[in-house]
Amino acid sequence: MYRIRFHGRGGQGMKTASRILGRAFFLAGYEVQDAPRYGAERRGAPIFAYVRAAKSPINERGIIQHPDLVVVADDSLIGLPAAGVLSGLTDRTIFLFYSDTDEKSWQHRLNLKNTLFTIPVDTQAVDPLQRRYAGVSCVGGAARLTGVLDQATLKKAIEEEMADRSPHTVSTNIDHANATFSLLAQHDTIIEEGAAISAVGYEPPKWLELAPDPAAICAPAIYGGGTSSKVQTGLWRTMRPVIQYDKCRQCWWICSTFCPDSAISVTENRYTRIDYDHCKGCMVCVMQCPSHAILAIAEKDADKVTLQEVPS
């Protein structure tokens, strides 16, 4: 069975990508499972989807524990533990990243010996959420790596999964899939089907006899305020608002009030400061700032920009 996991952000079309690959396997005569997996997270938040394919009926269900292939459509997720890109990897897990950083650098950065491929980003869009072909480009590459899906099948799968889109959109998606399919030609059939999970030599679950806790402990109650600040919604952000204090007119009541996430605080001397642990990168502040003092820069370029200190 092939076990393939897709990682991306909400809004990047991971569900569609996994469905195209699932459909392609199905058209090629495979039994298939494909499913997105998300919780309360929204646009920009890390999500994943998965595809299983096998020549015999698939009984396994739920999340993929040990993937044969991990596809990442947004390389800003790779370093985030919360995204779980490296979760459950084995020696034979292969990685496919949609990234302009080369394979060697990723292997070095992640300290991985696993086989790893990258597909160059094929758009000028700075914001990863605007890279509309990330998913389908990954699918083209993944299809080639399996070696059991041809371009005609891939084309048909895209046409069927995107039947409600315009002919132009469909053909552009096919072009992108074909490009990556060709790009990885020399790695055809590198992915092998994973084996069934062995019932011998497994690690048994450590079940316990659950003792009743007093109701005060085991009610679904949160005692204390403001604990959501421990959730780093800043991880959702692909674009970063940066205040240029030399242009700031100290009208704090605008950006601080309009920020939906309470992520812009007001300093003692009436400047504002953006809380990057929580800013989701909606860019409302950038749009509302009357003096255009807030810049929008791509998150991946953030460390190249020197942040201005809040004036004292």
Binding site: S228, T233, W252, P260, D261, V266, H278, G281
Partner: peptide, 29 residues
């Protein structure tokens, strides 16, 4: 005036509302 609005915000960040949620902004006010 708008500058009379509270300077600090009671509603903590870190909620799972969508980026740019108009409802959340109203609720924090």
């Amino acid at each position: 005036r708008q500058k009379d609005l509270p300077k600090s915000h009671l509603l903590s960040a870190g909620t799972p509302m969508c980026a740019g949620c108009g409802g959340l902004e109203a609720i924090h006010i």
